[in-house]
């Protein structure tokens, strides 16, 4: 199976590399976005204020984690999951279902875009700057915690996105629900505690920004207890299983373009 994914990715990278100009666009937009986010953070921290108990460099770690999620979005989630709706609209989902391979796997991992690479590097740099400015030395336990938290935040984002994309089997026209997701995700650039209490509940359980960026950052800093990490792991794996079940359930309602 890894072999198949490897072949998928090699071919899609080859076709993406035709668009070399995109590297420049991608890098400029990355630099612009990070500069803008840091500028906004700087506005918040003017005159020594504090944002929900987080200092400036700890907030940078959150921005770093957010940028890693951006990288995942650009590389895998966006190129694949935004195509699901198109397959349903054009009726080409029939061909996907007929392939001798798990349809969810094919729909989720068929393509990869190399343009997420700059974001990935930038995210890692931001995290390291944030950590070293705070004089945090990461121990072994923190590394395990942080990797677990980041992996579960990746799985979480994937599952939410896939579940939303699946709904287009019933409502073909809601393809831009992806945009709603992406625009709400922006809230994850800032620590959860910066939001008013009522929003915090929504951002933890309804739209789990807390587990996407805040908990992984806390794991890196070492302020997160192991129950938070465990919770985010359980949360993400259960959502992943739900996404698989939901896809199977939704396929029962799929009647191809002409029937």
């Amino acid at each position: 199976m890894l072999n198949i994914i490897y072949t998928f990715w090699i071919t899609s990278i080859a076709s993406e590399l035709e668009y070399r100009l995109n590297v420049i666009v991608e890098i400029i937009s990355l630099i612009g976005n990070i500069a803008g986010t840091i500028f906004t953070l700087f506005l918040f921290y003017q005159q020594g204020s504090n944002v929900g108990g987080w200092d400036f460099y700890s907030s940078l770690i959150i921005v770093g984690i957010y940028t890693l999620l951006e990288a995942l979005t650009i590389s895998i989630l966006h190129p694949n999951l935004s195509q699901i709706v198109k397959h349903i609209q054009d009726g080409t989902l029939d061909y996907v279902l007929l392939k001798p391979i798990n349809s969810q796997l094919w729909l989720s991992l068929r393509k990869i875009s190399p343009w997420g690479m700059p974001s990935f590097i930038a995210g890692v740099i931001l995290i390291f700057v944030g950590l070293s400015k705070n004089n945090i030395i990461i121990g072994n336990l923190e590394i395990i915690y942080a990797i677990t938290a980041i992996c579960s935040s990746f799985i979480l984002l994937y599952s939410i996105w896939f579940i939303l994309a699946t709904t287009s089997i019933w409502f073909v026209k809601v393809w831009n629900i992806n945009e709603v997701l992406r625009s709400t995700l922006v809230a994850g650039r800032y620590p959860l505690t910066a939001y008013p209490p009522s929003l915090r509940t929504i951002f933890t359980f309804v739209f789990p920004i807390a587990f996407l960026t805040t908990v992984p950052a806390q794991a890196l800093i070492g302020t997160s207890g192991h129950q938070n990490i465990l919770l985010s792991l359980v949360f993400s794996i259960s959502l992943f299983i739900i996404s698989i079940l939901f896809w199977k359930y939704a396929l029962r309602f799929y009647t191809s373009a002409s029937s």
């Binding site: 918040f44 003017q46 005159q47 204020s49 504090n50 944002v51 929900g52 809601v174 831009n176 629900i177 945009e179 709603v180 992406r182 625009s183 709400t184 922006v186 809230a187 800032y190 910066a194 939001y195 008013p196 929003l199």
Partner: peptide, 21 residues
């Protein structure tokens, strides 16, 4: 849905009002 995706100013409002600044 497009209209809902324009919520950014309200997210920023939530942040700005929550800051001890």
């Amino acid at each position: 849905l497009w209209a809902v995706s324009g919520l950014l100013p309200l997210i920023m409002l939530a942040l700005w009002t929550g800051i001890e600044n």
